[in-house]
């Protein structure tokens, strides 16, 4: 399927109907997730701030997932020279940066009342901040080099090097003593959360994932049109 969609025309035909369909799914999932968020019981320790978990944790998942997609697209672009791979990478970066920004901000807003501080330089938070800087660096590098092929190659190398940060983020809470709590959903022995909190989390996470899928397709379409427009403009000038 990926090979079939690597053809720009086939991707454009597929995404024409898939992007709005997945977007509608995202709206439905997030609407259900928000309803469950505000009907979940207060936590006995966290009180109402537990509701922030249902937007913070999905944003953090997506921050890492987008980067994994960016790394995959960069690898395909560098090694296989797929025509859509660079477009896929460029489309991932602003969305990933947005989700990472949300993870940092919502985490900080949760941390102030629960931990008594907006920010500490512990391993989890610092590595997520590095992830945000990697996204910014990727976009800045793409914008700084005029030659698009060279820009894509340089940015792809940066993205691939930055992949090392993903396991650091994931295992930072196990490898170091951190203020951030360890994994409570994806862990050996199953989740430690009650179902009343797992359901809103699951709906919001799936909603964020669908939102990313839909917007990613829209942005790849935009990149395909941008390249086509640049080609036509060059023809017109020549």
């Amino acid at each position: 399927m990926f090979q079939a969609l690597a053809n720009p025309q086939r991707f454009m035909d597929f995404s024409r109907w898939a992007a709005p369909l997945v977007g509608i799914k995202a709206v439905i999932l997030i609407a259900i997730g928000l309803w469950l968020t505000f009907t979940a019981p207060e936590d006995y320790q966290q009180g109402d701030t537990v509701r922030m978990m249902f937007i913070h944790v999905p944003a953090a998942y997506m921050a890492m997932f987008c980067y994994a997609c960016l790394g995959g697209a960069s690898f395909m672009g560098l090694v296989f020279r797929h025509s859509l791979a660079d477009a896929a990478g460029r489309a991932c970066a602003p969305l990933g940066a947005g989700f990472t920004f949300l993870a940092l901000i919502t985490g900080s807003l949760w941390g102030r009342p629960m931990w008594g501080t907006w920010w500490v330089w512990d391993a989890r938070m610092t590595s997520v901040l590095v992830l945000f800087l990697l996204y910014i660096g990727y976009m800045a590098l793409q914008a700084a080099i005029d030659d698009e092929v060279k820009a894509a190659r340089a940015a792809s190398i940066l993205a691939l090097v930055g992949l090392i940060n993903l396991p650091i983020i994931k295992f930072s809470v196990d490898w170091w003593n951190t203020l951030h709590q360890p994994a409570s959903v994806f862990r050996a022995g199953g989740p430690t959360m009650p179902a009343a909190y797992l359901w809103p989390l699951a709906f919001m996470a799936l909603g964020y994932m669908a939102l990313f899928g839909s917007l990613w397709m829209v942005r790849v379409r935009s990149e395909v049109w941008r390249k086509r427009a640049n080609g036509l403009a060059l023809q017109a000038a020549g």
């Binding site: 309803w35 505000f38 009907t39 207060e42 009180g47 109402d48 701030t49 509701r51 922030m52 937007i55 913070h56 944003a59 602003p94 969305l95 947005g98 920004f101 949300l102 901000i105 919502t106 807003l109 949760w110 102030r112 009342p113 939102l211 917007l215």
Partner: peptide, 27 residues
């Protein structure tokens, strides 16, 4: 039952949801 009164945590909860809505809207 819908609980939209976060009490003393409102100053942290609503900005978190508001900023999320703004960033997602921008995307």
């Amino acid at each position: 039952m819908l609980d939209l009164d976060p009490g003393k945590y409102g100053a942290f909860l609503w900005p978190a949801f508001g900023i999320s809505a703004l960033v997602i809207g921008w995307m």
